[in-house]
Amino acid sequence: MRALSCGRRVLAALSTVALLSSCALGATGQEQAGAPRPVGPVTMVVPFAAGGGSDISGRAVADGLAAARPGLRVDVDNREGGQGAVGYSYLLSKAGSPNYLLATETSLLSLPLSVEVAFSHRSFTPVMKLGEDYTLLVALPGSPITSCADAVAQSRHRRVLAGISGAVGPDAVVFSELQRRSGADFDTVPYEGGGETMAAVLGGQVELASLNPSEVMGQLRAGELKALCVFAEQRYDYPQLAHVPTSLEQGIPVSFAQFRGVIAPGGLSPQATTYWIDAARSFAGSPAYRDYIASEFLQPRMAFGEEFAAYLAEAETTLAQVVRR
């Protein structure tokens, strides 16, 4: 698996350019620095392209927060590029402003561990961990690959292209672990988001794809794709996915869940931090949150504020053992 170790200089350059550009655009956010609560429209930054899991998450949370706080307006702004570095760098430039949020996931941890960027999870204010999301390995129905174990076996003898979202994101971690633990040798092709990865496997540009259930459920139901396994320790309880075997069942000792959450810029006032955590708790207790979790087939493992920060620190330590190999 080559994608995890290649292209680091390119990603570093992208993130540096993004930071310089976003600093030039950051005046509006800086005007609100130190404010006790947002004033006017709020921007939910999605650091990946439209159509993927991060985009779905950002839009669901934006709507849920607006519903939980009457009068609040939250607009979604997709700022993809640099495998997420562009969006995170943009949020970095809004330090102190309560008018910005970001739909985050595991790239918040894997990017700083893999490439030279100007941020880490400590650069931002943790608001809410929404839940955990396991990835599926999928292929076209007519593919000769019939399981995850079969995919690993075939990758040792022929070239197998696998699409992933981001060169250093959760999918890359899964394939890195496949190589380390099972001797697989996939050629991974990184895309900017789940939507592009989906298009690649449906169009035959890659033979396999690593996608979250929410990204691929429509295609599974329509018979356009088949699920080979889920990289989890236990099968999903959701009826639509209960038939999908785990990687462990197939003798592949790889299990990895990415988190989904919401962060705000660093340097928020205590009042603004409390405002967003309270709003997130209101969202978490609403039917909108339960509908989001169910529709995206997530595990509803929540954390708020300092508890979310502690989770990030622990997950960073675990992830470093994989990403920095």
Score class of each variant (00 low, 15 high):
A118M: 05
L109K: 10
E105H: 13
V76F: 05
V152E: 02
G84V: 05
V117G: 08
S143I: 10
A153M: 05
T106L: 11
G84F: 03
S93D: 03
Q154K: 14
M128I: 08
R159A: 04
T106D: 15
S93M: 00
A85C: 15
P126F: 03
P144R: 01
L72N: 14
P141F: 10
T125I: 11
D150M: 11
L109P: 08
E132K: 00
V115E: 01
F119S: 04
A151F: 13
E105L: 01
N99V: 15
L136P: 12
E116L: 14
R156D: 02
A153W: 07
L113Y: 08
S143T: 12
L108M: 11
P98Q: 00
R158W: 08
L108S: 03
S120L: 09
H157S: 11
G84D: 10
Q154M: 09
L130R: 00
P112N: 06
T135M: 10
T104D: 14
R158Y: 05
G81A: 02
R159H: 12
V117T: 15
T125H: 04
V76N: 00
Y134M: 03
V117D: 12
P126L: 03
G84S: 02
Q83Y: 15
L91T: 03
Y134L: 06
S147F: 00
L140K: 03
P141M: 06
G84M: 05
A95P: 00
P112H: 05
P112K: 08
V117L: 02
Q83K: 02
L130D: 00
Q83I: 07
H121Y: 14
A118V: 06
F124W: 10
S120P: 13
Q83M: 09
D150T: 04
K129A: 02
T125Q: 12
Y88F: 14
R79Q: 05
G71K: 08
V74F: 04
Y134D: 06
G131L: 01
L136H: 06
L101A: 08
T146C: 00
A153P: 03
Y88N: 01
A103Q: 02
S110W: 01
V74I: 13
V117F: 05
I145M: 09
E105N: 14
A103S: 13
D75Y: 09
R158V: 11
V74N: 07
L111F: 06
A151S: 15
L140Q: 08
L137H: 01
Y90D: 07
S97F: 08
L113V: 14
S93Q: 09
N99M: 04
G87S: 11
E116F: 08
K94R: 15
R73H: 15
C148N: 05
F119Q: 02
L92M: 11
V138N: 12
F119L: 02
I145D: 11
E105A: 15
D77N: 08
D75W: 03
G81R: 06
G87T: 11
T104R: 03
A85F: 07
L113Q: 15
T135W: 02
L72Q: 07
N99K: 05
A85G: 15
L102R: 01
P98G: 01
A95F: 04
V86F: 03
P70Y: 12
G142N: 05
G71A: 02
G131V: 07
Y88M: 04
N78D: 14
D133R: 07
